[in-house]
Write a protein that binds this DNA or RNA. Structure first.
Lengths: 188, 188
DNA sequence: TTATATTTAGACTGATTAATCAGTTTGTAA
DNA sequence: TTACAAACTGATTAATCAGTCTAAATATAA
């Protein structure tokens, strides 16, 4: 029914499989079971579609984590939850996670205003800042801690997708990795 | 003189600036001050050029770290050296580091045999394994430790390239980040 | 009902592009 | 000199692709 969503889903599948250059708009329309004109009716250019897809996925990713930050609970538990959830989101949505990386290392990133990108991390920043003030986290720039934290999610994603793991081993690895991440971030 | 190298250098500049799709082979030839046909004389297809460039950069990156591993010195000092050097290489060669990431999240990665990719990390693996056996590092899969280690390099690269830093602050940040990385990896 | 938005199919275009190819230059060695 | 291969040239080609256009159909809402 929702043709716009059909187009985005088809685009995600094809861009991940064949790259930006390797996927003609015509094929996206066919894969979405939509007329050629419909694609260009909703997205003026191919680039507009590429960026719209990125924004949707970033929002989806953020919405998956947001409830943890705003919810109740001990702050230290929240750190764990955020990490575990971030990794789980990436592993349950490998295409989406991959697309975001693919986009981040492409010239398309340049067309997203810096302000928009900044806005996406501001919620994390306030949260991390609180952890630093309470002397739970190392006394470093919150942005550095976020960058290293994201680096960890990136690292473990690569590790867990480089080979086959049983679900049990996967969970064990994620939990033990968090212990390592926590050793990295914690104050003492 | 060496036209092949001219082509690779030009390709690096243009691919990083405009992406794989955004750079016609014709432009690479012009930028390299070489005839169109010369490019295809050395590289049968555009893809072959893209992959050749990737392999060269990976080799260059490895050669920068290798002497540390094989050299003399305390193993714990080597861990620090490898981290610091890895970050420095990325920061001194942002184009090359960026290209490797761009390639890693592109369909071109699929054409590199897994065996070749494995071979690139085997030297690290033996080294890490020794650290684990000696109970200097946490008792985890060496590949996991390498993945998290690389995640850190990735994270700090993003942080240090997201804004301007004075050389002094940059070095301070790298050193302090290493302390955090070490807290993550060390046995106790 | 009427108007407005959305959708369809596919032919079309103008520009771009990867790759080719017939021939030229260069270095070297007989 | 001659011979030969490797390196190089750049105009040409055949194909592809993003985006347009048309005219009709269908849905949505005022």
């Amino acid at each position: 029914m929702d043709k716009k969503q059909q187009i985005l889903s088809a685009a995600l599948r094809l861009f991940v499989a064949n790259g930006f250059d390797g996927t003609p708009t015509a094929k996206i329309a066919i894969e979405a079971a939509v007329a050629n004109g419909t694609l260009f009716y909703h997205y003026k250019t191919k680039e507009e579609l590429i960026v719209a897809l990125y924004n949707q996925l970033k929002e989806e990713q953020a919405n998956y984590i947001l409830p943890i930050i705003t919810g109740s609970g001990f702050i230290t538990d929240k750190f764990r939850d955020i990490f575990i959830h971030s990794v789980h989101w990436a592993l349950s949505n490998p295409d989406k996670f991959y697309y975001i990386q693919q986009f981040n290392f492409s010239p398309h990133l340049a067309v997203v205003p810096k302000q928009v990108l900044k806005q996406q991390t501001i919620i994390y920043e306030n949260f991390i800042e609180e952890g630093i003030k309470r002397k739970l986290l190392k006394q470093q720039d919150p942005e550095l801690i976020i960058a290293l934290f994201n680096g960890q999610v990136y690292g473990i994603y690569h590790y867990l997708t480089s080979a086959e793991f049983t679900p049990a081993l996967r969970e064990k690895t994620i939990n033990e990795s968090y212990e390592m991440v926590w050793d990295m971030m914690k104050y003492m």
